[in-house]
Design a protein around this nucleic acid. Sequence first.
DNA 1: ATCCCGAGGG
DNA 2: CCCTCTGGAT
Length: 220
Amino acid sequence: MDPQNIHRCFAALRVAIPEPKTELNYDSPFQLLVAVVLSAQSTDKAVNACTRTLFAAAPTPEAMVILGEDGIKAHIHRLGLFNAKARHVHALSRQLLALHDGEVPADRKALEALPGVGRKTANVVLNTEFGQPTIAVDTHIFRVGNRTGIAPGKTPLAVEQALLAAVPAEYRQDAHHLLILHGRYTCTARRPHCGHCPIFPCCEWPDKHRWAAESSPGGA
DNA sequence: ATCCCGAGGG
DNA sequence: CCCTCTGGAT
C-alpha cells in the first residue's frame, strides 16, 4: 500500500476511534503486565472479569507471591491455559522482587527474560507504560495488517516491522491502539463489518465488497 | 511443530 | 460441533 493511502487509513481510524477507552485502568505497570500475560488466547472480557478480583486480592508483586500459585488459580480458573498462566504470574512476581526491586523494567531484554513474557507482551508494556512507539502484533493486528494491505507479512514480526516502516510518525504512538480496536470491533476475524468500516475507501482487501453488502446498515 | 486448555460465537 | 480468542515456552 502506498504511503499516502496508509496515511488516509490512520486519519480515518483516529476519527472513528477517538478515546483511549481503556475498559479497565490498571494501577501500575505490574498490573498491566499481569493482565497482558493472562490475555494470551483469551478474550478481553474474560481477562477483565478476573483481573478485577485478582488485583483486589493482590495488587503488588509482594502480595501476588503471598497469594501463591493456587490462590492465583482461584481467580483465573475460568481462563483458558489457566494452569500455565498462574505459574507464570507467580514466578514472574518473584523474579521482579528478586532481580528488579519489585519494579517492572522499562527494558525489552529484561522484560522478555521474565516467565511468560515474549515479544508481544513486552511491546504492550513498553508502549502502554513507558511511552515507547512499539507495536505489539497480536492476532487482531496481524489480521488487519494483512487483510487491509497496510502491513502485509507472513509472521507477526514481519508485520511489526512493516508497520514500523509504514506508519506515519504522527500516528506511531497510537497505531497499536487504533489497529487493535479496529480488529476487535470492525475488521473481525469471521465476519468483518465492511458495511460500516471507517477505512473502507482505502482498504485493499479484494473481498471487502462481498462483506459490505451483508454488514451495511440496512442490509442483512 | 506442539502443548497449554476454558469460554463464547457461529 | 468447530473455531477463535490481544501467546509463550519447549
